[in-house]
């Protein structure tokens, strides 16, 4: 009896793992990627300014800069690099 429960339980675990691997994680992955893509767009909008594209909203969007640097910092650390960019870009 106990062995049967064990079997059932492990079967359920396998199903769950399968679900996680084939469904949930993929969804999560896609959604996270979507979030990142949108953040990339925002990043591009702001960094255009540093490339010399005149931005009438530059003064109003100054608040973004620290968050962009923080974002860049988080990204290069995630990518496994302790420092990033030329002198002064990040750290």
């Amino acid at each position: 009896m106990t062995g049967r429960w064990e079997q059932l339980r492990s079967a359920w675990r396998r199903i769950e793992e399968f679900h996680e691997e084939w469904f949930a994680s993929r969804w999560r992955h896609v959604l996270r990627r979507e979030a990142r893509t949108q953040q990339d767009t925002l990043r591009a909008m702001v960094l255009l300014q540093t490339l010399g594209v005149e931005d009438p909203a530059a003064y109003e969007t100054l608040d973004l800069i620290p968050y962009m640097v923080a974002d860049l910092h988080e990204w290069h650390q995630r990518m496994g690099r302790e420092t990033f960019g030329d002198e002064g870009v990040c750290c």
Binding site: Q49, T50, A58, L62, I65, P66, Y67, M68, V69, A70, H73, G88, V89, C90, C91
Partner: peptide, 17 residues
């Protein structure tokens, strides 16, 4: 709000902007 180690870079970018 943000980590200390990025502050020098933040300062530079703000001064530039």
């Amino acid at each position: 709000a943000l980590p200390r180690e990025i502050m020098p870079a933040v300062q530079r970018h703000l001064d530039h902007a």
